[in-house]
């Protein structure tokens, strides 16, 4: 029986909650996303739990739909960065030689430009649509996954048990999937959590800068952008997404930490 520490339990609960809210948004949200249902920046009330936004839409509903967009984009980007990064990373580590050199140097080059700057440069010439946004985010982030996957796989690849498998005559597929992958899984899963958080923060930042999700659709970053002018009048509507982003990020972080610790202690075994 696995004992789950309270911190991880907290993380699992909130992560689960956010994903459920994202999936069932149309059933949970009290109002539609775009309908103007009240005055501008109404305070919290029983009708509008967390008030209304800059043009009188229900903020809670917008937050729920916005969370759906944010989580969807971040999840898709993470899936892309993971599949691309880990497949290429493993391949580079196991095959080695010039393929490894070529891929690794290319990744070095991409990573020598800050991600945000790179994204801004690319988005200045590409139409900002959801698929392009996801693709740009996923591919840029896959460089980080590639580095980790390659480093982990290189470490495992020189272990005697992998050599034993090669000596036995096992093929590359067996070596990657049966010998290396099971041992690389825990750092990769933990990294997946961190990449997901990064994607959430990144897409929020892009939307805030006006280069992410385009109106009337909105994600959490976009909601900040819409309501930021209220700040100087003492209206905190723009800070609501901060709470959402922070709790989601912290929850996923706690789960990732737990996954990493649990599996490393299992691997350590008896000293």
């Amino acid at each position: 029986m696995i004992r789950i520490p309270p911190a991880a339990l907290f993380g699992l609960f909130f992560t689960g909650l956010y994903f459920l809210m994202a999936i069932f948004a149309p059933w949970i949200a009290p109002y539609s996303m775009t309908e103007v249902v009240g005055g501008v920046w109404e305070p919290w009330s029983s009708k509008h739990w967390i008030g209304t936004d800059n043009i009188g839409r229900d903020l809670l509903s917008r937050m729920i739909y916005g969370g759906r967009t944010t989580i969807f984009i971040a999840t898709m980007a993470t899936i892309i960065s993971f599949t691309t990064g880990s497949i290429l990373g493993f391949t580079a580590a196991v095959i080695g030689g010039w393929i490894d050199q070529l891929l690794s140097r290319f990744v070095d080059l991409i990573m020598s430009i800050p991600t945000l700057i790179f994204a801004l440069v690319v988005l200045s010439v590409m139409p900002v649509t959801l698929p392009i946004l996801i693709l740009v985010m996923g591919l840029l982030d896959s460089t980080r996954v590639y580095r980790l996957a390659r480093a982990v796989a290189v470490d495992i690849n020189v272990m005697d048990f992998v050599e034993a498998a090669k000596l036995r005559g096992e093929g590359r597929i067996w070596v990657i999937f049966r010998e290396i992958l099971p041992n690389a899984l825990s750092p990769l899963v933990a990294e997946m959590g961190l990449r997901f958080i990064f994607a959430v923060l990144f897409v929020s930042t892009l939307s805030f800068l006006g280069l992410g999700v385009q109106p009337p659709n909105a994600d959490w970053g976009g909601i900040v952008k819409e309501n930021k002018d209220g700040i100087v009048y003492g209206i905190p509507a723009a800070l609501v997404p901060a709470v959402a982003i922070a709790t989601l990020a912290i929850s996923v972080n706690l789960v990732a930490d737990w996954v990493l610790n649990r599996t490393t202690s299992l691997k350590g075994g008896r000293g």
Partner: peptide, 18 residues
Amino acid sequence: LREIQMIYQMADVAMNPR
């Protein structure tokens, strides 16, 4: 390959921990 087998110094890294 079958005819020549190998045993290593460090038994704990010679076996897949998983």
